[in-house]
Nucleic acid binder design. Structure first.
Length: 292
DNA sequence: CCTCAGGACAACC
DNA sequence: GGTTGTCCTGAG
């Protein structure tokens, strides 16, 4: 058991932040969570303000500590926020204990291809179904059965029609073709990420079928350690228009929104992706609506 | 019946 | 390079 506290790791906020689709509440809100990553699983328990990671010190040091991003000083980054930006200050305050997880590369590629034009509960369902069909089956004694995340090979091996019946729609072809391609270029992509050549990694990601700018930026942020990646989705567009807009009366073009994001958040160089998560999580939590 | 959801892509101009 | 229509599927 590894002990921390809510201000450093808030499982409720992380579970609902939309960066992870295989984190589940076990025991109702605010008590027990299960986090799945590849073929690993971690139990997280909250008791009051205390939070416990249920694993050995070896497992923690060897994997989960980095996965949970526990070696980063978030308080130091919070302190850099512009106090005049009231929306961001509120979002940051509401997001205390939010962390950017360092998730598996292939898992994030497939998960965020699935995420397009879907709502989070639907994404969870699809990812879970994909794991059940293609993932490794875990049958620990005295425990319920669970499944790991599929490998690119296991998906590709089933052929182009192997994904039918999972409610993936037009994403079937994207997932199949990207799995085939990942077998070829996966190692090269990982090397590029390890060298922190994020611009090059982004170009490789953009060459994958079904990966556009938004999905590529999510993968960079949630799996590649590129804390400066700022995914622009419909929620961010809505925030930029409502909180940082120019009140032109008509919706700005996507390019203009991206430009505006750089104007407003460019000063948070090195951690603008964390800023994105703060305002994104705040937005979808519903707390953004002021109660004057 | 319609619209929209954490987009991507191809076909235009 | 910017804009528009189309793509499964499920929920409201």
């Amino acid at each position: 058991m590894i002990k921390t506290d809510l201000s450093l790791f808030n499982p409720d906020i992380i579970c609902d932040s939309g960066q992870i689709f295989r984190m589940y509440r076990v025991d109702g809100p605010g008590s027990v969570f299960l986090i799945y990553s590849g073929d690993r699983r971690l139990r997280v328990e909250r008791k009051g303000d205390d939070v416990y990671f249920c694993c050995s010190a070896e497992e923690y040091e060897g994997y989960w500590k980095h996965y949970l991003d526990m070696d980063r000083d978030y308080a130091a980054l919070e302190a850099l926020i512009d106090p005049k930006d009231e929306f961001l200050v509120r979002a940051c305050r509401a997001g205390k204990g939010l962390r950017i997880l360092n998730q598996d590369l292939f898992e994030m590629i497939i998960s965020f291809i699935i995420s397009q034009q879907k709502q989070i509960p639907s994404i969870r369902k699809c990812v879970g179904a994909l794991c059940e069909r293609f993932g490794q089956k875990h049958t620990d004694v005295g425990d319920e059965i669970w499944y790991g995340f599929p490998t690119a090979r296991s998906i590709a091996a089933a052929g182009p029609d192997g994904l039918k019946g999972l409610s993936l729609g037009y994403r079937e072809r994207y997932i199949y073709e990207t799995s085939c391609r990942f077998i070829e270029i996966g190692d090269d992509l990982k090397d590029t990420v390890d060298r922190k050549a994020f611009a090059a990694a982004r170009n490789i990601l953009l060459s994958l079928t079904g990966v556009g700018e938004k999905v590529a930026d999510c993968i960079l942020l949630f799996a590649c350690g590129d804390l400066d990646s700022f995914p622009v989705d419909t929620h961010i567009i809505s925030i930029m228009d409502r909180e940082y807009g120019e009140n032109t009366g008509q919706k700005p073009s996507p390019a203009r929104v991206r430009e505006r994001v750089r104007e407003v958040f460019g000063k948070y160089k090195g951690f603008s992706g964390l800023v994105q998560q703060w305002i994104f999580a705040y937005e979808i939590s519903g707390q953004n609506k002021r109660k004057d």
